[in-house]
Amino acid sequence: MAKTILEFDVVICGSGPSGATAAFLLAKHGLKVALIDKEQFPRDKLCGGLLTEKSYKLIKSTFGNDFFEPDLIEFSSNKFEIFYAKQKILSAFSKKLFIYVDRKKFDFAILKRALDSGVNFFSKTKVIDIDIKNLLVFTNSNIFKGRYIIASDGVNSVIRGCLIKKGILVDKEYKDNLTLAMEIYNYEFTTDRASIYFGFTKFGYGWVFPNKKRTLVGIGALISKNKGLIKKQFKNFLNSIGLDAPKIFNAHLIPTGWISNRFGFDNILLVGDAAGFVDPITGEGIYYAVKTGQMSAEAILMSEKNKLFAEVNYNSLIQNIVSNLKRRRIYRNLIFGTKFRLVIKFFLLIILFLFKDRLLKFIHE
């Protein structure tokens, strides 16, 4: 049976924060937008759910001051503490709040804004392949044709994979910069602060984040630097804070530190995790997802006027983000690169005590 070809101005593959943000902004400007996703929403999403100040401000400026309804914020606190293994190095207050959200609710709230703006949403629609010449997206149901395509389909992006196979993108160092994050929810103890733990893994850290009715405990580290030991390291971390390790962990990949040679092809744009836009040190992705979703929409609106390929406009908009992520990758390698753990501990002590405020500004801004 032949599949139906559905035509739109823009076809967006992936309806997480980056894709839904782009869809929301483009539909508001009158473009006919298809937003497709392999999942049915609302859906579960593994993530610490911590919003920094820059993320909070960006989201409010994009979706309005009324976006953060009371039930959307799970917890907020300016308290945090830093550990090296079991030893507490610092307990302090941030001048700016750390805000915690449940990604299931948060992502769905952005999607609802997109739907309210007139976006056509297709759930349970899995991208199989694309035709980069004719701008066709082949899925398990229909074929979508657009004048522009946005790839917001995450760390395992099918569209990015297609561009790599065609030699357009170079995936050098991609696997070397993949982080594996493991998380559990604990309903038996609560906390009122973010706790960060170094020393349990290489090129990564463990965390304990507060929520309304549960506590989120996780660890994230570069796979290439830990030789299959991350699961064992997570068990050791859990045991060190008095928790039993479950038989099954929630796990997901994060692209931390891979900088692509290109971020699209002509009128195809990559955003969020699909493009590798994640902080190489902290693993923060929400800010970059919303920001690059916003910039991809802006690039397309510019192309409607100046008739240049959207990739050209997009490249001009994301230059600062790319430069910033390259700098942070250098900082990551300096911070975690030493083989001597006592040096890392000593380095952390100096940084935290002498430059605490600058470090917090680095995270929040």
Rank of each mutant, 00 (worst) to 15 (best):
R329G: 13
F265D: 12
L216W: 05
N313M: 02
A20P: 08
V322T: 10
K28V: 01
T338M: 00
I196L: 10
A297N: 07
S77F: 02
Q233S: 13
S117H: 05
R327F: 14
D153G: 10
I300W: 07
S61I: 11
I351R: 08
K105M: 07
Y197C: 09
K60M: 10
V101P: 04
F203W: 02
K356P: 02
I254V: 12
F144I: 10
V322N: 01
F340R: 08
N156S: 13
I318W: 04
F93L: 14
T4G: 04
G146L: 05
V278W: 02
G242F: 09
R328G: 12
C47F: 00
I82G: 10
K79S: 15
P210Q: 00
A299M: 10
N236T: 14
F93D: 14
G257R: 05
L163F: 08
A34V: 09
R262I: 06
K54H: 00
T125V: 06
F108W: 11
V271T: 12
K60W: 04
Y287D: 08
E53C: 07
F138C: 03
V155E: 08
D192H: 09
G30P: 08
G64E: 06
A22S: 09
S91E: 14
K145V: 03
G64L: 07
L238K: 06
I230W: 01
L269K: 08
L6G: 00
G19C: 05
N140D: 15
K305R: 15
K45R: 00
Y185C: 13
V101R: 01
D102Q: 11
S224P: 06
I351T: 08
V170R: 13
K57C: 11
P70D: 07
L243V: 07
M295I: 07
L359M: 13
N315D: 10
I196W: 02
S260A: 15
K213A: 06
C47T: 03
I99Y: 12
D176W: 06
F200D: 04
T191G: 02
F98K: 01
N315C: 06
K104M: 15
F24K: 05
I344M: 07
E311M: 07
Y174H: 12
D357Y: 13
I350P: 14
K88H: 03
